[in-house]
Design a protein around this nucleic acid. Structure first.
Length: 460
RNA sequence: GGCCCGUUCGUCUAGUGGACCAGGACGCCGGCCUUUCAAGCCGGAGAUCACGGGUUCGAAUCCCGUACGGGCUACCA
């Protein structure tokens, strides 16, 4: 592959579960690099696991990536010069390549049953040696069997390659046993399909998670055996870790589901910002980055080598920063789907007191649900009831607008002989049924005047 | 077991031989503001740089070893 080739990168998620944080993170780094170099970003669906694939998971990948504005230039839904982009639709390609390898003596059929392989493995373990396939089907194939997988005959030697984050990598392929490239169901394994497609789709830079670092020599041997040019470089990005330091996985960590972030009201641009900072840093003290700033600042040299724990607290802070930075119009627009019970006008009026109080959009519900639910009427002592009555009197003839309400209330407080806290707390309780609310004048104003007065009179 | 990657405040990190008895951010604690809760502002605590050996006048920074964590080693991806 010539160095001057236009950059082509890709992600290859498998639709075996919801789209998760790791997919977003890898996609982000790929997109950043593509935008930075004027390259092309390809989405390839890696659906070679017939047991676990589900079409709805593929739809979720599209939905999640689009939500994050991590759009692709070529993919199953858009087509492109290397279609199809779904591996299940490229089985002929892999079969053809496997046949070529077999013909050239670089791969062979393996008729071993899972039980036989398991026995080999056990044996090796018992003898305390590293397990490698015995090659019995190469040297002494069994007779009369028809079910087979295809194994790559590992040539051994040393495999070296350039990693943009870790530098020159070197692996001893002598330690790698012959591995399966086509499963007995006819579908390719990841180790086979991935490098074949990368080569055929002319991927120039393979940017993926660190879990694939040790897989790279497997794939490079295949690329060489097939006679394809190798990618210019790889970049193995640090893993996102769960709180306990283990790799964030779909099974163990359902909270890594991207759709859940959207549904809780994390802003896509805030999540992107946080993800970029997890494992990479600009070398300056800047923390908040627009997408364009990320495109300009990102570089693989400044990528962390070790995994990073996902920290909700910091994400919450960044998300809050973004929420506070939104215009009233924009915030109202984004809040809409979280507050279907409210008129646009009410949402709009709620924004000034609301915006500094949320670190995620779904919290608006906690502050505003008193507007569409009827709180229980508190039972107040005689003295408190007098104050509520005073509030009603003060409010009765006031224009229903926050400032007017505030000054009317302040007058009532002044002549009540108690402080604001003591005066407002029962009002808040009566109006919302909660101990925490927006400032009392906003709490009142957002409610229709008759409804507000009704609730107060009920308690008085 | 083998191979690979990693290890700086609770967390994310700055740091590439002397300016570091280690800087920033989140979180935490205290104060101010304040009707509650936030936001904002001010201040503070918090890291013997995993450990042990080297190299060097000098090491968080270089080398070796150990420990710990993670990944891969599947007819999962």
């Amino acid at each position: 592959m010539a160095v001057s080739d236009p950059v082509r990168v890709r992600i290859a998620p498998s639709p075996t579960g919801f789209a998760h944080l790791g997919t977003a993170s890898t996609a982000l780094y790929n997109v950043l690099f593509a935008r930075q170099t004027g390259g092309t970003f390809v989405l390839r669906i890696d659906d070679t696991d017939m047991e676990r694939n589900r079409p709805e998971y593929e739809a979720l990948i599209y939905e999640s990536l689009r939500w994050l504005s991590l759009g692709w230039d070529e993919g199953p839904d858009k087509g492109g010069p290397h279609a199809p982009y779904r591996q299940s639709e490229r089985v002929d390609v892999y079969k053809e390549e496997a046949a070529r390898l077999i013909q050239q003596g670089k791969a062979y059929r393996c008729y071993c049953t899972p039980e036989e392989l398991e026995a080999e493995r056990r044996q090796a373990q018992a003898e305390k040696r590293a397990y490698r396939y015995s090659r019995r089907c190469l040297t002494n194939p069994p007779e009369g069997r028809s079910v087979f997988a295809v194994r790559f005959k590992v040539p051994g030697g040393e495999v070296t390659f350039a990693d943009m984050v870790r530098g020159e990598m070197r692996f001893d392929a002598g330690l790698i046993g012959d591995f399966i490239i086509v499963k007995s169901d006819g579908y390719p394994t990841y180790q086979f399909a991935s490098p074949v497609d990368d080569a055929r789709m002319e991927i120039t830079h393979v940017i993926r998670g660190e879990e694939h670092l040790s897989n790279t020599p497997y794939q490079l041997m295949l690329v060489d055996a097939l006679g394809y040019p190798r990618p210019h470089a790889y970049a193995h990005m640090p893993l996102i870790l769960a709180h306990d330091g283990s790799k964030l996985s779909k099974r163990k960590h359902p909270e890594a589901n991207l759709i859940l972030f959207r549904d809780q009201g994390y802003l896509p641009e805030a999540l992107i910002n946080y993800l970029a900072l997890l494992g990479w840093n600009p070398g300056t003290e800047q923390e908040i980055f627009s997408f364009d700033e990320l495109v300009r600042a990102f570089s693989f040299e400044r990528v962390q080598h070790g995994g990073a724990r996902f920290d909700w607290e910091k994400l919450n802070w960044i998300n809050g920063e973004y929420i506070r930075g939104l215009s009233d119009e924009e915030l109202a627009r984004r809040l809409k789907s979280f507050l279907p019970q409210l008129d646009e006008d009410v949402v709009r009026r709620a924004i000034p007191p609301l915006r500094t109080r949320m670190y995620k959009l779904a919290q608006a519900v906690d502050y505003l649900d008193y507007l569409w639910t009827d709180p229980p009427t508190p039972s107040l002592d005689a003295e408190t009831v007098e104050r509520v009555k005073a509030a009603i009197d003060a409010l009765k003839d006031v224009p229903w607008e926050a400032e007017a309400i505030e000054s009317a209330l302040e007058n009532a407080v002044a002549s009540s002989g108690v402080g604001k806290g003591k005066f407002y707390t029962p009002l808040r309780d009566t109006l919302t049924g909660k101990k925490v609310s927006l400032p009392i004048h906003y709490t009142l104003e957002l409610l229709p005047k008759d409804e507000a007065l009704k609730r107060l009179e009920r308690a008085a």
